[in-house]
Design a protein around this nucleic acid. Structure first.
Length: 577
RNA sequence: GAUUCCGUAGCUCAGCUGGUAGAGCAUAUCCCUUUUAAGGAUAGGGUCCUGGGUUCGAAUCCCAGCGGGAUCACCA
């Protein structure tokens, strides 16, 4: 009984076109054709290979999704989409079916193949009267049946797209559909892949080693951020999803590697917007015997190399801006930057003086903020957004950089830089702090900040301190936000566009069986006792408003759970079983 | 978290101060042997996001909720 209802329900929820395709699927099977064959299909060419190396009459075997079907009597055109692009195919009835049996054309191609189906095609190349390269079909095979119709955007001769699949919610939740019908979306992810390859190539050619470090960490270190918490059952202990991999990579430098890097999926339990996703990808690299000056040069050359690898040029458009990744980049100290944009010199100022300046200059502050955070707020508010072209901001206050080596010329500062592009931080690098005593003190200061209410201050990682005590060579480290870099290189203003599956609220799926509303259940409960009763009596018994009653009853009859019969004198409601 | 806009057919979208739910594409049937988003004819297709309220009557007005976008806040 229940499975039957369930089956009915799932059919009710299918659209006409989905039902149609299921029926077609059955027909295909009835004709003895397997709609999901197991055997490999011997593809010989991609659509783009055919375009690039066209030869009249060449035999090819191609496969892909059927994306266009234009039937005109005994001959038809269709379009096949594979991973590289599209190719037109030509079906001629009497060439495909030379004998009396016209099944393959009249039935299989014309009626049983739907848009979106995977089809394999064997044929020869020719050019149509309008000169389009086309495969003349000799034989074809259904490789996989599609049961859901795809959205079908079309671009006209003027380049205008009709029926574009643009709804962001649908696009992100069903990225597979987005990728099938929006080629420009696929291009973004191909470029993303090129970023990774360019980085790897750049690092590997210099002898640096790609490594992997823990994602589940007992202490979430290496950044100031709120972590996700999880629990390990066997150890009965709390673990955190990493917010950064910095402390582990430095342990490897302690261990004797001289250059290590990792593409790190990091997780931060913070807000989401068009530049923040709860999980994101950072690349961190640590190189022994270097300092942050060396790292600046390294970074600008890396980015120049990457921009060329991705776009073939160092110039990239981003919204209204044009960004040039050509090295070298401008270098400005944080102190100078604040002077440039506000005239205020933070040098030698006390916490109180900074706070006073902030409140009288419209920079929001609160009492959990120490000197470092105050300066960071000034910079964030007044300067950060102004740097469009790649610019290194150097020499950050010590308090906000607890893992960074003190500046060689000024004990209040650190040897740190961030790379700003289009007003956003893209990279962050240090001469790494390798003095274990200093590092312990810095952690303790963080502890004080956290007692003051800063819920992002860092935890003390005793094992990391132990590692430093064994000795770490002077080292420079760099972190780059890959998602943001990809945004810049692909001209996407939203991080969701450069992640295959951006985080979204879980989708609601109907539970099993008919999904009854509260009112429907109420009516059904009464009706189940009586099996059959007068409509007016039932209505009074459930005491619902007119509208609620009406909707409830209509729902029940629609689900096939109740039936209303009209007699001469009254209306009778029956429970149907 | 705040503000604001949006949710109508498989897709893209109309639908006015409340009065029988629409178009194009897609789908189905028929005609058509070289088409370029869209050949011709006919037909089917709806939980107007959900629930409640106002009303003789709600896709439309009001309230609440759900989902999404944008802006802001938060965010090394």
């Amino acid at each position: 009984m229940l499975p039957l209802i369930f089956e009915c329900m799932s059919l009710i929820e299918l659209s006409d076109q989905e039902i149609q395709r299921r029926e077609t699927l059955n027909e295909i099977r009835n004709f003895g054709i397997e709609p999901y064959p197991a055997a490999l299909y011997p593809v010989s060419h991609l659509s783009t290979d055919i375009e690039a190396n066209y030869e009249e009459g060449k035999k090819v075997i191609v496969a892909g999704r059927l994306m266009r079907k234009k039937i005109q009597g005994k001959a038809s055109f269709a379009e096949l989409q594979d991973s590289a692009g599209r190719i037109q195919v030509y079906f001629n009835r009497d060439e495909i079916c030379p004998g009396e049996d016209k099944f393959n054309y009249n039935e299989l191609f014309k009626k049983l193949l739907d848009l979106g189906d995977f089809v394999g095609i064997e044929g020869t190349l020719f050019k149509t009267q309008v000169g389009e390269i086309t495969v003349r079909v000799v034989d074809f095979k259904l490789l996989s049946k599609s049961l859901k119709p795809l959205p079908m955007p079309k671009t006209d001769a003027d380049g205008v797209t009709h029926d574009a699949f643009t709804n962001p919610e649908l696009r992100y939740r069903q990225r597979y559909v987005d990728l099938v019908v929006n080629p420009h979306v696929k291009d973004v992810f191909l470029k993303r892949n090129k970023v990774f390859n360019a980085f790897r190539e750049f690092f590997n050619s210099r002898g640096y080693i790609e490594v992997e470090t823990p994602i589940l960490q007992p202490i979430p270190g290496g950044a100031a951020a709120r972590p996700f918490t999880t629990h390990h059952n066997a150890l009965d202990t709390t673990l955190y999803l990493r917010i950064a991999n910095e402390l582990y990579l430095k342990r490897l430098i302690v261990g004797g590697f001289e250059g290590v890097y990792e593409f790190s999926k990091n997780f931060r339990n913070e807000g989401m917007d068009r530049t923040h996703n709860p999980e994101f990808t950072a690349m961190e690299i640590y190189v022994a015997y270097k300092d942050y000056n060396w790292m600046m040069e390294f970074t600008e050359r890396l980015l120049e190399h990457t921009a060329i690898a991705v776009n073939g040029t160092t110039v990239a458009s981003f919204g209204d801006h044009t960004v040039d990744f050509k090295a070298p980049y401008k270098r400005v100290t944080m102190r100078q930057s604040i002077i440039d944009f506000t005239g205020f010199d933070i040098h030698g100022k006390t916490e109180e003086e900074l706070r006073t300046w902030c409140t009288s200059n419209g920079v929001e502050v609160d009492f959990t903020m120490g000197k470092g955070k105050l300066i960071d707020s000034i910079f964030g508010e007044k300067c950060e957004g102004k740097y469009i072209q790649p610019t290194f901001i150097t020499d950050y206050p010590k308090e906000m950089s607890p893992l960074c080596k003190q500046h060689r010329d000024n004990p209040e500062l650190t040897e740190r830089f961030e790379l700003m592009i289009c007003g956003k931080e893209v990279a962050n690098a240090y001469s790494e702090l390798n003095d274990p005593i200093d590092q312990r003190e810095r952690f303790e200061e963080q502890l004080k900040l956290s007692e003051k209410g800063d819920d992002e201050a860092m935890f003390i990682d005793q094992d990391f301190l132990r590692a430093l005590e064994y000795g770490m060579p002077p080292t420079s480290g760099l972190g780059i936000g890959i998602d943001r870099l990809v945004m810049y290189l692909t001209n996407n203003l939203s991080i969701q566009e450069v992640l295959f599956f951006p985080q979204m609220k879980p989708e609601k799926w109907g539970n099993s069986g008919p999904d009854l509303t509260e009112n429907e259940r109420l009516i059904l409960a009464v009706l189940e006792k009586e099996k059959s009763m007068d409509l007016v009596v039932l209505k009074e018994r459930v005491a619902l408003s007119n509208k609620a009653w009406d909707l409830g009853m209509k729902g029940l009859t629609k689900h096939g759970l109740a039936k209303v019969t009209k007699t001469d004198t009254s209306l009778i409601v029956d429970l149907t079983s």
